[in-house]
Design a protein around this nucleic acid. Structure first.
Length: 427
RNA sequence: GUGGCCGUAGCUCAACAGGUAGAGCACCGGAUUGUGACUCCGGAGGUAGCGGGUUCAAGACCCGUCGGCCACCCCA
């Protein structure tokens, strides 16, 4: 019988890695909290129409990357490929948009892509969305919040902030027309993928990795020249605010977004330390989306960070915390010893809940239990044997003593267990 | 969807002009009756991803298939 394995691109996150994940999640939640953002929890499955309407029908995500299926009722459902659509849907449906909202969410997203480094089919994003504020101080806040997070995680010096404004929908439409017109007479100079994109999503040609295509674009129209006055002024103000806050950035006039709903400010935090998938966090303004999904027109801006990519970065740069060590391992040989040890350990956990205490299970000789104690990585072994049971005492043995103080071991009365253990751990 | 590399014990990997597989780590047991790590001794564990083909003989060669990694693409 063949082994049942996980679905391709949907990975297990193993015990050795969860400490890093928890550290990352805690850090993010703390920073977001300090900026006054509230968590919102959203379904993993939404109606397919939500994503078609928000992300855009002709995007790669909607065309070939969504996990879409009919439920038992025959309605089309989709595992969320990103979080903004669901968050906007909830904000509208639950009537949250009467006042400005600062929200965040976290969880798995699903896209049917070919897995590679920093890219899987089930991946995790933490998203931040702000509703109801149209001015660029909000854009600055969002970016600043990210910068603070990178600083706390020790990742500032490997992150670069790329910034652009893609203007209003009208400006973009005009630019798009100009770009297509320019490129159409130079089709044969473009790489194959860009030729295809000329008909599907011409703006994406801007971030082609092909050198010759980039050379052709150098001669073409610039998005900057098509920006409406408001977008231009907002962008200038955003730059000003970022400078005032001491955030470094690079203006990249060819930075665009893969999803249709963005306008004005777009940004990406990228790193060179992750191989091809260097975008760690990306976002932008989407002032039209709420109305597009049936809500009252509400300006909004948001971004999402790729958790797997951040975890990879933390690990590669040695910023990932080690898994917490076991403090004490309880060795108990014999039936009576086990009873006494169990009781004392429970009491100890109640007194010192922050300690990580493993009670040996599975029987075995004294020697084998000691081996397990050592392998567990515990700093101290708490030993109950016949002698201890008879004397109502316990042996506290330090397992990580340095050469000079090895064999450090004391047998004390049960009532002194807590203080003796704490003293041993303080070493 | 396209391309490159890869698929041998739980893990990391060997070997050999094609002749029925090996190391290190991990695991289990022992080296004085209640003391781990270091050392020594012993043990268990693989129908070589799967399916075909070539051959007297294939883990090694060929084809297919599945899976992994990386890149393209896409994107967080």
């Amino acid at each position: 019988m063949s082994e049942i394995t996980a679905i391709r691109g949907m990975n297990d996150i193993l015990p050795g890695d969860t400490a890093c994940w928890q550290y990352l999640e805690r850090s993010i939640a703390a920073v977001l909290g300090s900026y006054g953002y509230s968590e919102i929890r959203l379904p993993v499955v939404e109606k397919t129409a939500l994503f078609k309407r928000s992300i855009g029908e002709v995007t790669d995500i909607v065309e070939k990357e969504m996990y879409t299926f009919d439920d038992r009722n025959g309605d089309s459902m989709t595992l969320r490929p990103e979080g903004t659509a669901g968050c906007v849907r909830a904000a509208i449906q639950q009537g949250l948009l009467g006042t400005p909202q600062r929200l965040w969410y976290a969880g798995p997203m699903f896209r049917y892509e070919r897995p590679q480094k920093g890219r899987q089919r089930q991946f995790h994003q933490t998203g931040v969305e702000s509703f109801g504020v149209a001015t660029p101080d909000m854009d600055a806040e969002l970016i600043l919040l990210c910068a603070t997070l990178w600083r706390q995680l020790g990742l500032v010096d490997c992150m670069e902030l790329q910034l652009n404004s893609i203007g209003s929908a009208d400006a973009r439409k005009a630019y798009r027309a100009a770009l297509v017109e320019f490129l159409q007479v130079r089709v044969e100079l473009l790489d194959e993928d860009s030729q295809r994109r000329l008909h599907t999503n011409p703006l994406r040609i801007l971030d082609s990795k092909n050198a010759q295509t980039q050379a052709v674009l150098d001669e073409g129209p610039s998005l900057e020249d098509f920006l409406d006055d408001e977008a231009e002024a907002d962008f200038a103000r955003l730059c000003e605010l970022l400078q005032a806050a001491g955030v470094n950035y690079v203006v990249n006039r060819r930075l665009v977004r893969g999803l249709d709903y963005y306008n004005k400010t777009v940004f990406e935090w990228v790193t060179r330390d992750l191989g091809a998938q260097g975008t760690v966090c990306a976002g932008g303004r989407y002032d039209g989306l709420v109305a597009q999904l049936g809500g009252r027109a509400t300006p909004a801006i948001g971004c999402a960070m790729g958790m797997e990519r951040l975890v990879l970065l933390l690990m590669e740069r040695g910023e990932a915390p080690a898994a917490p060590a076991i403090d004490a391992y309880v060795v108990a040989v014999g039936s009576d010893a086990q009873c006494q040890a169990l009781r004392a350990t429970e009491e100890l956990r109640a007194q010192k809940p922050q300690l990580r205490i493993v009670q040996h299970a599975g029987g075995g000789s004294f020697k084998s239990q000691m081996k397990k104690a050592d392998k567990s990585g515990a700093r101290v072994a708490l030993i109950w044997g016949e002698d201890e049971v008879a004397a109502r005492s316990v042996t506290v043995k330090s397992l990580r003593a340095s050469e000079g103080e090895r064999a450090a071991q004391v047998t004390v009365a049960l009532r002194d267990l807590e203080t003796t253990l704490c003293a041993a751990l303080a070493h």
